[in-house]
Design a protein around this nucleic acid. Structure first.
Lengths: 188, 188, 188, 188
DNA sequence: AATGAATGAGACTTCATTCAT
DNA sequence: AATGAATGAAGTCTCATTCAT
């Protein structure tokens, strides 16, 4: 399944090393070393070092989740929790990737744009789930605020994934989801 | 106020360039150039390049705000808005700084720790304002969720300050604050 | 025989320059220049400057001479002279090398150890020749004193090879050898 | 007695550090540090770094020993032993100095000349003692060989003082002195 | 297709020396 | 007389990239 071609091994090594030390601080020679390939091969497949970053961006998984998959009509809290679980599942493999792209967004426009896109996608995803789970009875302004807050919280969590090695209460996000769900529905 | 000593000029140049291109990608020679000082002087004041980063970390403004300054008893929304405004005012000068430290947190433990500290400080700050503005009548769990959410949203906004060239809707955070305030108080 | 590869040219240039000016005072750039290779190539073959020294140490010729080659049974003076001549012949090419290693022994343990080894080898060599030439009839204490003295004299001569520009009397060592030989045998 | 002026402290620090790491590898800043004086003062007293070396050379103790002090007429072995003991006593304080000058002789002519002088002085000293102790009855050629050998052995011992930290049998030189004395007198 | 030798620009850093005070 | 801030030349070493094979 996961190809073990030399090219793939190079990409995986680059991903790991960029995540560990950052793009600039990672020599291509070390990528070759970690991938177990001759130094020349890295530049044979990826002429410039930045091509490696471009290839990693292209690998970002799609965040588009079919609302039907996670929505339980009438149960907003459950639906949002389902969304979070599904997102985590899908991004879990690429947490390091998310984080490293985050870091390099400043200096590489392609990376920056890809991340901005993904954040917008995330916001709309949350909105869609809220609307679908509540039958569209919530005021648009509240839907926007809630989805903005939740998207930010999720994004922040991914971006800082590497910082907080240990800490970070795993139930924390759960409670925040519940808080938002109740805030949105209590008024009804 | 803002000293114009050579040392200060070096620090400001480093801050700007690190923010633009990242720590690794910024040569000390360019820092000297931008500061208008000879190359040797940079290393005279900051032996190692990383000492520049350490000096910038030490400059981070204190996020501790006296609750009394922003709290309007009975008006939670107003109080939180006041807090956000005050924080923005205080951090405005150092937005670039926040962002660059955020970027370099992975590879420099001192930076990572300073940022983690500041995030905790932020969470407690929000908690304190909520409690003070509502007279402590809100359930602890809700206070935690709300302050976690808001702290993350604020932190995320600072961290991404540089990404969204096309500026963010300034009213967005305002609406999110209101949403949280209402969520906390509507139940009362 | 003497390879003319770039690597060899670098080593020869390093040897000559270290001998002329010492290890610390010789820039790698000058080594490259003298060897007629680009600056980068020096560090391609020898990552650190000290690796050049290590490579030179490894080149030291073996001082182990088969006693049979120089010993004339019954003729101690002739045997010792034969040993000296053979040693000189063998070390002649590396006189500069001996001298520079001598200089750098303080600061580079590998060099120091190599030289200490070689001195011990030299002492045993002289002992072996004395014993073989005299049929083992000399008192052990005298053999030790004589070989210690001669080894030191030889070693001193190599070590100071570069100091005495105004060459040393070449017959001097010859006479000293004779003196020792007679001292050992006169008593018999 | 031993002045503790700043200038003296600088010289002592330079001596120690040059001995430890060599002239080139010792920064003047470290000399100042070890001497406990401000950096500027080193260059105030010794404008160039090499002036420090020159000052150290000028400090070399005189090796000229009045033969009468050590000679016991008729006892050559005792006389030579007396000479060695007296030389050791006198040079003991400056062993490190001898050694470091020896090291730097290649690159600093003034140092080289001073050392060559001292070696000649040493040879003549040994000759004088031999002649005085034996009443001048030894053949000139033998006196030359013997004094050459002994001077070299002594010089070698000083030059290598720092190499052989531990080893080096202290009775070794004693036995070698005895060996030479007997060689010279046995024939009589 | 694949490789590793080779290159040279440029990074960080050290340091002797000067100079204003 | 004494100091430490300031300078810039030069040193070691790293690295992306090219190229011949």
């Amino acid at each position: 399944m996961t190809e073990d071609s030399a090219k793939q091994r190079i990409l995986r090594a680059a991903e790991a090393l960029f995540a560990e030390s950052g793009f600039e601080a990672t020599p291509t020679s070390r990528i070759a070393e970690r991938a177990g390939v001759p130094k020349g091969l890295v530049h044979y497949y990826f002429r410039r070092k930045s091509d490696l970053l471009a290839a990693l961006v292209a690998e970002l998984p799609d965040a588009r989740i079919e609302p039907a998959v996670v929505v339980v009509p009438g149960d907003l809290a459950g639906s949002l929790r389902g969304l979070v679980v599904e997102l985590d599942r899908r991004f879990n493999r690429s947490l390091a990737l998310s984080h490293l792209l985050w870091r390099e967004a400043d200096t590489h426009r392609a990376v920056r744009d890809a991340l901005a896109d993904r954040f917008q996608q995330l916001v709309r995803q949350v909105q869609a789930v809220i609307v679908a789970a509540t039958g569209g009875k919530i005021a648009a302004a509240d839907v926007d605020s809630a989805s903005g807050l939740l998207a930010r919280a999720l994004s922040h969590r991914h971006a800082t994934a590497r910082h907080n090695d240990d800490e970070e209460d795993p139930a924390q996000i759960e409670r925040e989801v519940l808080f938002i769900a109740e805030a949105l529905t209590r008024g009804q």
